[in-house]
């Protein structure tokens, strides 16, 4: 059994390798064109409105059927949590979290963190089994059955979003916010977190329309916002983008990110070379995991790899 799994996996990874050799135009289709999908949806997040009530966290937990949290969602002591010198991050059990920051000489500011659904997602381009997909609606989703748990995307994501199910020995996979694609976005409905927010911190709509609204808000409220829309240009543009009244770095944003996508294989084919280098260790991790999987597990897993192979052809 283990042998068969391994052979099939190799076939699958050969197809993955072939994908890397596609012409730039073909790869562009896979990764989304540079402008993203013009009709794609997005979310404008206005940090000045957030009061840190964590209702959005509760809504995501219900919508995505996530496990019970450690503390109630109305418990604000989580804002003081520091682990490894860092504030809370998204986990496999919490696709979104709200953190509090204390900017110099200003009131505390709260920031909701989730996948930003990049126009050109580094998670997608770094994934060598093509588990990720950017949908025309704007969501960056992934296929858990294809994911081999190599964690390339965790390293590639500039916002540290994908989380890993460390607790699952048999089938460790990546978990992250999916823009409520299956249950809502597909039907044109706003995500659960957006709808739940009492302050309409988040406005849902076409990315292009929202960008105009964002710039309008800056213009119509002189002195209220810093003159920057975080995510308009960063890493090639993100589907969820932000307005703030304090400099973005004071609200915990990484302001050193380039405006170019992290793995720019659409316009610069050469950029793939270093990616291949990063893939090899991951490949071997993949082999190891699959070998372990084959021994301890039976048919369920094989089935998913059959599907994967089918896709590859």
């Amino acid at each position: 059994m283990g042998k068969i799994t391994r052979r099939k996996f190799l076939a699958g990874s050969a197809a993955g390798g072939a994908a890397l050799m596609l012409t730039p135009a073909q790869k562009a289709l896979a990764a989304g064109s540079f402008e993203g999908f013009p009709e794609g949806m997005g979310v404008l997040v206005d940090l000045t409105r957030c009061v840190g009530c964590r209702t959005c966290e509760a809504a995501c937990n219900v919508e995505q059927k996530l496990p019970e949290p450690a503390l109630p969602f109305d418990d604000t002591s989580v804002f003081d949590e520091i682990k490894h010198g860092q504030k809370r991050r998204t986990t496999d059990k919490a696709y979104t979290i709200v953190n509090r920051y204390e900017p110099e000489g200003a009131d505390p500011i709260y920031r909701k963190i989730q996948c930003n659904h990049c126009n050109e997602p580094a998670c997608l381009t770094s994934c060598f089994v093509n588990a990720y997909k950017k949908t025309p609606e704007g969501a960056v989703i992934y296929n858990e059955k294809v994911c081999v748990g190599c964690r390339n995307c965790m390293i590639a994501c500039p916002f540290h979003i994908p989380a890993y199910t460390y607790h699952s020995v048999l089938n460790p996979v990546i978990k992250k916010c999916i823009f409520c694609y299956d249950t809502r976005l597909k039907e044109g409905r706003p995500p659960a977190c957006v709808e739940s927010c009492p302050q309409q911190v988040m406005t849902f709509g076409k990315r292009n329309d929202l960008m105009k609204i964002a710039h309008d808000r800056i213009k119509k409220n002189p002195g209220k916002y810093v003159n920057h829309v975080y995510g308009e240009k960063e890493v090639g543009g993100t589907g969820w983008f932000y307005l703030s009244n304090v400099p973005f770095e004071e609200a915990g944003f990484d302001t050193d990110l380039p405006n170019k996508p992290i793995i720019d294989n659409v316009k610069d084919f050469l950029a793939i070379v270093p990616m291949v280098l990063t893939i090899w260790p991951a490949l071997f991790t993949g082999f190891h995991l699959l070998a372990t999987k084959g021994k301890s597990h039976g048919h369920g897993d094989d089935h998913s790899h059959d599907e994967q192979e089918g896709h590859g052809k």
């Binding site: 209702t55 509760a58 809504a59 937990n61 219900v62 019970e68 949290p69 450690a70 503390l71 109630p72 969602f73 109305d74 418990d75 682990k83 986990t91 496999d92 059990k93 919490a94 989380a163 460390y166 607790h167």
Partner: peptide, 19 residues
């Protein structure tokens, strides 16, 4: 129930939070 507060407060367990 929605906020997991009041009578729905999570029971403290050793493995309470993620990484």
């Amino acid at each position: 129930e929605f906020y997991r507060s009041g009578e729905f407060t999570p029971k403290k367990s050793a493995d309470s939070s993620g990484h």
